[in-house]
Computed example of a mutant assay.
Amino acid sequence: MVSVTSLFAPVESDLQVLVENLKNLVGAKHPILYAAAEHLFGAGGKRIRPAIVLLLARAVSTGTDILPQHRRLAEITEMIHTASLVHDDVVDESDVRRGVPTVHSSFGNRVAVLAGDFLFAQSSWYLANLDNLTVVKLLSEVIMDLAEGEIQQGLNRFDTDLTLEAYLDKSYYKTASLIANSAKSVGVLSGLPNHQLDNLYAYGRSLGLAFQIVDDILDFTGSSEVLGKPAGSDLKSGNLTAPVLFALQEKPYLRGLIEREFAEASDFEQALDLIHQSEGIAKSRELANQQVQQAIACLEDLPASESQKALVELGNYVLRRVY
């Protein structure tokens, strides 16, 4: 199976520069914020979002090197993503992410909230310094979307009337908006025509939704070691995802278990069993597959290159995680 890191071969050296730059960009005046940043950017994340930005930049800049603004955009994208993770971990009370202690479990909640705020503020400052109003608007919207997604998730806990459409909207806000808008921003910085900008946006949107659906499937099929958190933890906290929503259409008994918030001792295990007995996981795979095919179709007008090929393969990699 192809690893995600080997997919990023065309931008491997770009990503190494990015990691070093991120530590310098944060350059926090306070030692504890710097320690938090060091901890965040040193953690073994896959850097998928900045890699997508850099691959797209290389795919649309055939024959020339990518712009310094493209590199900065990739750094801003990772800063925004990391800031949102720090806040998510506080909201979700997660002690570990990717096998590494979270900022709030290492430094306390106050520092974690401030570190997240600091990263959002830093990313906004660097964003303004790109001097491109269109890109500022696109990525400012992402920061609003991230908050909107978190709020929607909080308001819809244990809500068995949640529609698939509402779930996809929330998934867009929480995951796909950043990938879609940063992908479109690559094209804006390269001066591409509108129809190509729309394709880049649509690629990021569909890929981002596929990512989220796959993560939600893995919450039921992955091991705790791989997930870095207990299996089914989204369901336990009342966050109803695609496999649950599909299962609810088949297994009416599941509704009652969720609505009483797994009050009885065996409720949660029963709920997991019902989901596994249903078509929920298979239908969610199909949904992820549809999104990946849509994403790949958006790359057709890009010239053939190693980077373009890697972007196509990235869609296939996302799916292979659940097949």
Rank of each mutant, 00 (worst) to 15 (best):
E93T: 13
L25T: 10
A297Y: 02
Q294C: 11
L155H: 08
F220A: 04
I213R: 01
F246P: 02
L218N: 02
N239Q: 11
L40W: 00
L245S: 10
N181Q: 12
K283H: 10
R58F: 06
P10K: 06
A37K: 00
V11A: 08
T102E: 01
L162T: 15
A74N: 06
L240M: 10
G208Q: 04
G238C: 10
T62R: 12
H70F: 11
T82P: 04
A9C: 07
L240T: 11
D267K: 06
S6T: 14
E12H: 13
A180E: 01
H104C: 10
F262K: 02
S266F: 05
S223D: 12
N199A: 15
R72G: 04
S177T: 08
D131S: 14
G27T: 07
E264M: 13
V90F: 05
E141T: 12
D14P: 05
N181P: 02
P68Q: 11
Q122R: 13
E286H: 12
G191H: 07
A37I: 06
P31D: 09
R47S: 07
T160R: 00
L189I: 07
D92M: 11
L235E: 01
R320H: 13
V91E: 02
S106P: 02
T175K: 04
K29Q: 13
G154L: 15
H81S: 08
L287M: 15
